[in-house]
Computed example of a mutant assay.
Amino acid sequence: MALKDLFTKNQVKKKKYATIPTEAAKNDVPEGIMTKCPSCKKIMYTKELSKNVKVCLHCEHHFPMNSKERIASFIDEGSFQELNENMISGNPLQFPGYLEKLEADRQKTSLNEAVITGIGTVGGHKIVTAIMDSTFRMGSMGSVVGEKITLAIEKADELSVPFIIFTASGGARMQEGALSLMQMAKTSVALKKFSNHGGLIISIMTHPTTGGVSASFASLGDFNFAEPGALIGFAGRRVIEQSIREKLPEDFQTAEFLLKHGQLDAIISRLDLVEKITDILDIHQPRGEITWQ
């Protein structure tokens, strides 16, 4: 028998394996039950991630938080009272499609604008806070955002309590042109007046804090803090590199880069934030000294 005939006669038959339909595989794990960390690539239960204030259980990567999640994790339970919640943006420059985009974001986020302001307590201390939300128009600063922040600063001045702001923004809102840029000056003047009256300003920059927001109220705190890994800067990396014709460091415009170059006071993990801010408030204003108005 020829060698080739031997192989043909006794060839091994391939085993048949059952294949799982794609849709069935998807149904085994309901959508949203697991989350993959973009930093360490490990997978964890979404519920466990939420319990850990959206900080990765393995590498401490800080996932984005919306304003409502931030209130729940930072403000003492049951103490938050929202300010100016019904303020909404108009279309002063008659920018095409702007009102429709605003309405779409209102429906998607259940927010009226890219910032929530209010009165609450942190560690028993009364404060006024402004919390920007990147899920609404990428946290862009328009006239209403600037007005709400200014009114919140003035309320803190009126009550003689600290003002704490969380920033998350792509910068000034292009659909409002120069009117959005004017908010940089308005909020900065309000902070200066508040500071002159002895007010405490704490700024906490989160990912991302850019453009006119980083160039105004975000950087004007008595304490300027940031979350780990947050992108903080004015112009984009590519614009700067093209302007100066130099390659920028890999960590350029990160919170760690800014801390190293003296532009931040500290980087604080979300896991330690309430404790650290409470310590500062303890020093500035002992508990019980201020009564609710």
Rank of each mutant, 00 (worst) to 15 (best):
M1N: 05
M1C: 04
L3I: 13
K4H: 13
D5I: 11
L6I: 14
L6M: 08
K15W: 00
Y17C: 01
A18M: 09
P21F: 03
A24Q: 07
A24K: 07
D28I: 15
M34N: 04
P38I: 09
T46K: 01
E48M: 12
L49W: 01
N52P: 06
V55H: 00
H58D: 11
R70N: 12
R70W: 14
I71L: 13
A72E: 15
G78W: 01
L83I: 13
N86L: 11
S89G: 08
G90C: 06
L93G: 00
Y98I: 03
A104V: 08
V115L: 06
T117D: 05
T117Y: 03
G118D: 11
H125K: 01
T129A: 14
A130G: 13
I131D: 08
S134A: 10
F136P: 00
V144K: 10
E147C: 02
K155T: 15
K155S: 05
K155R: 14
A156S: 12
S160L: 05
P162S: 05
F163R: 07
I165Y: 00
T167Q: 11
T167H: 09
S169P: 08
M174F: 01
Q183K: 14
Q183V: 07
A185H: 06
A190Q: 12
K193T: 14
G198E: 01
G199V: 14
S203Q: 15
T206R: 08
H207W: 01
H207F: 02
V213S: 04
A215W: 03
A218T: 05
A218M: 05
L220Y: 02
G221H: 12
G221I: 12
D222V: 05
F223L: 15
L231E: 03
G233L: 11
R237S: 04
E241G: 04
Q242F: 02
Q242G: 04
E250F: 07
D251M: 06
T254R: 14
L258A: 14
H261E: 11
I267Y: 05
L271Q: 10
D272L: 05
K276T: 04
D282Q: 14
D282H: 08
I283V: 08
H284Q: 03
H284R: 12
T291S: 11
W292T: 02
